[in-house]
Design a protein around this nucleic acid. Structure first.
Length: 155
DNA sequence: GCCAACGTTGGC
DNA sequence: GCCAACGTTGGC
């Protein structure tokens, strides 16, 4: 089992939106970065766990946890001319963009702030604290997953 | 709104 | 395949 961090802008779709969805489940679509796409297509597996990270908002940080309930499959929005994520160069025989389905698991009482994450001694590997921190889908190693989850629950 | 740190595009 | 120009992300 692997661990991940998915970024989202809560003004558009945050952890509360995930909670209010039918079955508390939502396709994680609209990812349009090749490195992030490769993770979604090749590595994110059913039952993996995911930190839901809120960006570009008042309280930047990790808001909760979701579980992957469906591994990578074609992101339907790439084929939809009405969608903001439409990609005219995409084709169905060889989809360019992928998504997974995630289901809500846990919401922390408070968001674990980015500032705090950066100050934690054991947290040196996660993409948030390194260069290349703009990736919207990033792996989290097992040790840092445990440290961050524990810290978030103790807030 | 600023701007650093990227990623992508396209001319050559 | 290089790289300048351009676009986007995201913290502050």
């Amino acid at each position: 089992m692997n661990y991940w961090l998915f970024k989202t802008e809560p003004d558009t779709f945050g952890i509360d939106d995930l909670i209010s969805r039918p079955h508390q489940t939502e396709p994680w679509d609209g990812v349009r970065n090749y490195q992030a796409r490769n993770f979604l297509r090749d590595e994110v597996a059913q039952e993996d766990e995911v930190f839901i990270y809120h960006s570009s908002c008042k309280e930047v940080g990790i808001a909760g946890i979701a579980t992957v309930v469906k591994a990578g499959y074609a992101d339907e929005t790439q084929f939809d001319p009405e969608s903001a994520y439409y990609d005219p160069k995409a084709n169905r025989t060889d989809p360019r963009w992928y998504r997974v389905d995630v289901k809500f698991k846990e919401k922390f009482a408070q968001v674990l702030p980015l500032k705090k994450i950066k100050s934690m001694p054991g947290i040196t590997d996660i993409g948030l604290v390194k260069k290349g921190h703009r990736l919207s889908i990033m792996p989290v190693n097992k040790d840092e997953w445990r440290i961050l989850k524990t810290a978030a629950r103790e807030l």
